[in-house]
């Protein structure tokens, strides 16, 4: 019982699907055949990536660092130890490599979106190469490694945070139940009514003068944040 609008649109040609169907899944469905060495990757990186991300993927200038914070131990366990609350931090901030569990994600993303100012300009082998280079920086693969569609599943087994992800269904399903429960107390509710945190002084005018970010009429005016905060 097809609807009267059934035939609106047209069939996609195989070439069209190929042109756009670029996603690569964790099971490597979608991954094109190819290969790239760490060395090729380093060349591409220095030419097309390092200006933004730093020679070793460490730069915090254009985006947060890609590399850093993972250890040999992490590669063994598949869990980045520095992520645990209270653990000694091994990097100034969370890096991409500390978080990413799936090497497919790196391949897919670099292939679709990098270099940032010229996305989709890399050849498949070049993508293999830069992924290999990044993995070598993180000591996941050795410096003479050649990453390919044949061995990528093996490399996945060495991803430092490969066991670091959990799927928590209640926050994915609309009919799930929240993991944090409050109750709608109405009277004499438990609270210490003390100020646990307030805006640091340096942040008062860090967003400009708030006076100029509020309407010139109404029940309130913007606070003049060129003047000190109320005591």
């Amino acid at each position: 019982q097809s609807k009267p609008w059934h035939d609106i649109g047209r069939d996609a040609t195989p070439a069209e699907v190929k042109a756009w169907d670029i996603d690569v899944r964790p099971d490597f469905k979608g991954l094109p055949a190819g290969a790239g060495s760490v060395q090729l990757g380093e060349e591409v990186w220095m030419a097309k990536c390092s200006s933004c991300h730093g020679d070793f993927g460490e730069s915090n200038e254009v985006f947060t660092p890609i590399i850093g914070g993972t250890t040999k131990k992490d590669i063994e366990t598949g869990r980045v130890a520095a992520l645990v609350e209270g653990a000694p931090s091994t990097a100034p901030q969370k890096t991409t490599m500390m978080k990413v569990a799936t090497v497919s994600t790196l391949w897919d993303y670099i292939n679709r979106a990098m270099p940032w100012n010229a996305p989709k300009s890399l050849k498949a082998d070049e993508v293999y190469g830069v992924v290999a280079y990044l993995l070598s920086l993180a000591e996941v693969v050795p410096g003479d490694f050649v990453l390919s569609d044949k061995n990528i599943a093996e490399v996945q087994k060495r991803m430092p945070n490969r066991n670091g992800m959990v799927f928590y269904e209640p926050m994915w399903k609309v009919n799930g139940k929240g993991d944090v429960q409050n109750v709608a107390c109405m009277k004499d509710c438990p609270t210490e009514m003390k100020i646990r945190s307030s805006l640091p002084d340096f942040a008062r005018d860090a967003h400009g003068n708030i006076l100029e970010q509020n309407r010139v009429i109404g029940p309130v005016r913007g606070a003049d944040t060129t003047k000190p905060a109320p005591k």
């Binding site: 042109a19 100012n117 996305p119 989709k120």
Partner: peptide
């Protein structure tokens, strides 16, 4: 329109 990726798909 599909085969030749448009500028907005390949630029910033």
């Amino acid at each position: 329109a599909i085969l030749k990726l448009p500028e907005h798909t390949t630029g910033l």
